[in-house]
């Protein structure tokens, strides 16, 4: 199932500031379905990687305490216009997601 990733990149000098919002429920396993009362299973992103031109710049391991629809902001030095920023993630149920964009011109 495709879960959208919204990504924005801004270039300031040689620093690319990346902001990303990943659509994901990040279920803790503690919640119950309000209708049926059945427990909602644990469902959360375990690994997320951000890469610049295919080289990892941020590698993460996450627990279920990352907030729903995870937001991350990071800064990558040595970036230039048209470089490729990509994000990929995998969760505890084996679902995965991927998105990429290009570093824009200065501004």
């Amino acid at each position: 199932m495709a879960r959208p990733i919204r990504m924005r990149v801004r270039l300031d000098g040689d620093v690319a500031e990346v902001r990303a919002l990943i659509d994901h429920p990040m279920e803790t396993g503690l919640r119950k379905d309000p209708g049926t009362g059945a427990p909602i299973p644990l469902h959360f992103i375990q690994n997320l990687t951000v890469s610049l031109n295919g080289k990892p710049v941020l590698e993460t391991q996450w627990g279920q305490a990352m907030a729903r629809n995870p937001y991350i902001q990071l800064r990558i030095h040595g970036a230039k216009p048209d470089d490729e920023v990509s994000i990929e993630w995998v969760d505890n149920q084996g679902e995965h997601g991927h998105a990429s964009t290009r570093v824009p011109a200065q501004g």
């Binding site: 990892p56 710049v57 941020l58 993460t60 996450w62 305490a65 990352m66 907030a67 902001q73 990558i76």
Partner: peptide
């Protein structure tokens, strides 16, 4: 880490290849 969470370890962020040791995010407490 969030000490009082049922499971206190929130996450690990490793920086390489030019990423600044900086992270802005949102967590559950």
């Amino acid at each position: 880490f969030s000490d009082k969470n049922v499971q206190p370890y929130v996450g690990l962020f490793e920086f390489k290849n030019g990423a600044e040791p900086f992270i802005s995010t949102r967590i559950k407490m």
